[in-house]
Amino acid sequence: MAAAEVKSYREKLEKYLYEKNAFTDLLATAEAKTGVKRVYIVYGLMGLFLLYLAIGYGASFLCAFTGFVYPAYCSVKAIESERKEDDTQWLTYWVVYSVFGLAEFWFDILLFWIPFYYLLKCLFLLYCMAPGSYNGSEMIYQRIIRPFVLRHQDKVDRFIDQAGKRAKEALDTVLGTAMANVGNPPADGLKKES
């Protein structure tokens, strides 16, 4: 990342930290009581967050919370906005998040042995939700997921159609059997008590 971009992100963060909202009100109170600039308080909180992810109890929950809550909030905002670009950004994030979650399920026994796994996972999820040209979801989707899906789309569509037809047939059979047995007395061993 270029020094100019780091400076740009730092300036955006500092600008945000002086906007009026509940979080910045808390920061202003902490800044007044400690004499420490709010940007350094935020850097300290970020450091503690990363340290906790590396060695803390419940890091899996904190990582899941980070990878879900903020993107869910942004997704709701995207749904309510008029722009299409933010919808695409967050749909792409959720596709990558789902594929990652599925892979994580299958490789869980191996991932357990990776040191600082939840820290690495959280950094990966933050990369996937990053704004602008550094959005990991877009890169992963375009380079890995999209080509794979396009290559196998016809097979998957046929499988889904066949599975839907079989499920409908099974449901029709179950409902037909149930309707045929409505009103018939129960078997000897299943008599109702009076």
Rank of each mutant, 00 (worst) to 15 (best):
A22W: 05
V36G: 02
Y40H: 10
A22Y: 04
E11S: 07
V42P: 01
D25V: 04
I41K: 02
Y43L: 09
M46H: 05
L27F: 03
A28C: 08
K20A: 15
A28D: 11
E19N: 09
Y18F: 06
K12C: 04
T34D: 11
R38W: 00
G35C: 13
Y40F: 13
S8H: 03
Y9M: 10
V39C: 00
L48G: 12
L13P: 00
L45E: 10
R38C: 03
Y43Q: 04
K15T: 06
A30S: 13
E31F: 09
Y18D: 14
K12T: 03
D25E: 11
F49G: 10
D25F: 07
L27M: 05
K20L: 15
E31W: 12
Y43E: 09
E19Y: 07
E11A: 07
Y16A: 15
T29F: 09
N21R: 02
M46V: 10
V42M: 05
K20M: 14
A22P: 00
V36N: 01
K37P: 01
K12Q: 12
Y9C: 11
E31S: 14
N21Q: 03
E11P: 00
L48Q: 09
V36H: 00
K15P: 00
A22S: 11
L50Y: 03
G44F: 08
Y40K: 07
L50E: 03
A32K: 15
A22M: 06
K20P: 08
Y18G: 06
K37R: 08
L26I: 03
K33W: 15
Y43H: 03
V39P: 00
R10Y: 07
D25G: 12
R38F: 02
L50S: 06
V36M: 08
L48R: 04
D25W: 07
F49M: 13
K12G: 01
T29P: 00
L17N: 03
Y40I: 02
K33S: 15
K12F: 05
I41S: 05
L26T: 00
E14M: 13
Y9H: 11
Y16K: 08
G35Y: 12
K37V: 01
G35K: 10
G47P: 14
N21E: 02
L48E: 14
K33A: 15
E19F: 05
Y9N: 11
